[in-house]
Design a protein around this nucleic acid. Structure first.
Length: 222
DNA sequence: AAGTTACG
DNA sequence: TTGA
């Protein structure tokens, strides 16, 4: 039996890069609530496979919540206030999700993060995400907050140029990656999901990425 | 090209 | 596994 540590240790954080932090286990303790929120929102706006501009399909199924949802089709990548599948607004971003994302950003040094978009990615075995950068947002001063649930993955972390070397990092259930500042436009991706069974999500990995799609950062204080 | 394919 |  180990004695309780006092004072409690902060959660381990790893510096990925200038402005990029990996908060190990940030979402683990409340994973049940994270998962319940995603289950509720995907009941309103279901996961779906989107096309990329070349006409091919992504291997990852996506949905969104918040004022803006990220979409891809023959016309390109953009944010839309309406879910093209339901023709309704995306589900509102649950206060719990927005609050946790804000807290993660704050823990990584980005105070005042107020996401107006949350893209939810569902990976099944074999699904992957090629190297890309999140560049459809209006204000690159705001960071990206990325939350991993369920099966672990290999996260690919590159640099500002596509030809920069790519690091491979193992991400586990509950890990949160926050990047911004000098590495806001870094290339990143996810290796093919390996088979496995997670106690809460079975053979799936869910990834939530919180962004400020249209809003200015830092958010205005009333 | 958030895509696939070819190749060392 | 990496570059094109």
């Amino acid at each position: 039996m180990t004695l309780a540590l006092f004072p409690p240790e902060p959660l381990p954080a790893e510096i990925l890069d200038d402005g990029a932090l990996l908060l190990r286990g940030f979402a683990t303790a409340q994973a049940g609530q994270w998962i319940a929120e995603v289950q509720a929102l995907q009941a309103a706006s279901p996961f779906r496979i989107m096309q990329v501009p070349g006409g091919k399909s992504m291997s990852v199924a996506v949905t969104s919540c918040g004022d803006w949802g990220w979409i891809s089709d023959a016309g390109g990548y953009r944010y839309s206030a309406v879910d093209p599948l339901t023709r309704q607004p995306w589900p509102a971003m649950p206060a719990f999700l927005a609050g946790q994302a804000r807290a993660a950003a704050h823990a990584a040094g980005y105070a005042g993060f107020a996401p107006d978009a949350c893209l939810v990615n569902r990976y099944r075995p074999g699904a992957r995400m090629g190297l890309h950068r999140d560049q459809d947002e209006a204000d690159f001063a705001a960071p990206i907050v990325s939350v991993s649930l369920g099966l672990g993955c290999t996260f690919l972390w590159g640099g500002l140029r596509r030809q920069d070397p790519v690091r491979r990092l193992a991400l586990a259930h509950g890990d949160v990656v926050v990047w911004g500042g000098p590495t806001r436009l870094a290339y990143h991706g996810v290796g093919p999901l390996r088979d496995g069974l997670h106690p809460l999500l079975g053979s799936e990995r869910w990834n939530l990425t919180f962004r400020m799609a249209k809003a200015r950062y830092p958010a205005e204080q009333p």
